[in-house]
Design a protein around this nucleic acid. Structure first.
Lengths: 208, 208
DNA sequence: GTCTATACACTGATAGAC
DNA sequence: GTCTATCAGTGTATAGAC
């Protein structure tokens, strides 16, 4: 019954993803995950002996969904402006597809920072590859050429990712405080964000 | 023993703040809060009958620490550029003083958005006062005067708050991924953030 | 592999003495 | 107000039948 096995494991992971992202590690209940997967609680422990093991798998999936692919755009051979455009566009699409992952990962990492170590082992090592340093070299070249105003790669990258992620992660506050809990206004706001963020960032660093 | 009463309640609230912010609502334990406060678990229930009541008090304190005061800067009589400067400066100081509150509030609000309703009742109602709309009118005036490039208040405010909050809320990722877990580099990064964010935002919207 | 039943520990909350 | 003792409920995890 390899077929059933794979189907069950798939169901478990999908259910675990859903419940963990909604309730968090401590708030999630094995019972609820079992119910969501349409299986028995004991079967959950048959596949993943402990809640910790299951959680580790789920947060690993979440992390690897966001980091490996998109961040490599930074290493491609296009100009800084093009990189900003491609990155923001891809990143916002990814966030739209998985809106709960950024907040979930950030929150659980804050509660237990040592998770990051395990995450690094199983994902692409950014530091070793020197991606950020390489991007910074390109950036400073364009600064010297007078294309871009002085800025360092760390600030720029944090700004870009923050501008992309914040409106989603802080959805209750943005929708509640800024848009008086009007869902439509909030959704319309998100739709125009891609264009706006690209404009905002490039407008900030482009030399007059 | 009014003196002792106040002291105990103070100790409880301080301990509850610490534990709830560190572990979250579901992860926090009444026992740990009692231990941190140096009192008995039963005494906790004597002051706050349930965990929910205590949590509500704590998240209310956290919320009211961030919203009422600083956001009113938007309503003062200074120029848009000055508002940005004052707001970012005050906001980053406030975050530095209470680095765990933004992530705590955002996370708990995501898990239980209805908290916001109770929060609104007990804090200044932003929507009714039309603060954002007033700020937008001022903004559009300066746009028409050719001082500022076209931008709406919602995008600008989300950008500013996001740029301030993100590096703190996502500390494990920023410190871990961007700075290879180098604490000193991360702290140095935070120190230069105030100046950078102000520059970045104004540079983006200032008409050439 | 999948189920039912259950063990065992922990947690929030209360009772009652001081 | 503050403590000790304790209960009822819930949670993770396992045993054992099929």
């Amino acid at each position: 019954m390899v077929d059933n096995q794979e189907k069950t494991e798939e169901k478990i992971l999908k259910a675990a993803e859903e419940v963990f992202q909604k309730k968090g590690m401590t708030g999630a209940r094995m019972q609820e995950i079992a119910d969501t997967a349409g299986i028995n609680k004991a079967l959950l422990h048959y596949y993943y002996r402990t809640k910790d093991k299951l959680f580790e798998k789920v947060i690993n999936m979440a992390f690897s969904k966001f980091f490996p692919r998109v961040i490599n755009i930074m290493g491609s051979g296009i100009s800084v402006f093009e990189k900003i455009e491609v990155f923001v566009s891809n990143y916002l699409d990814l966030i739209a597809k998985h809106p709960f992952i950024p907040g979930f990962v950030i929150n659980e990492l804050n509660r237990n920072p040592q998770i990051l170590i395990s995450l690094f082992e199983k994902n692409i090592r950014l530091k070793e590859e020197g991606l950020i340093d390489k991007f910074n070299i390109q950036l400073q070249e364009e600064v010297e050429q007078g294309i871009i105003k002085p800025i360092d790669a760390r600030n720029l990258m944090v700004n870009i990712v923050g501008l992309c992620i914040f409106p989603i992660v802080a959805k209750p506050i943005v929708q509640g405080v800024i848009f008086g809990n009007d869902k439509k206004q909030y959704n319309d706001f998100l739709k125009q964000r891609k264009e706006h963020v690209i404009d905002f960032v490039i407008s900030s660093i482009k030399m007059d």
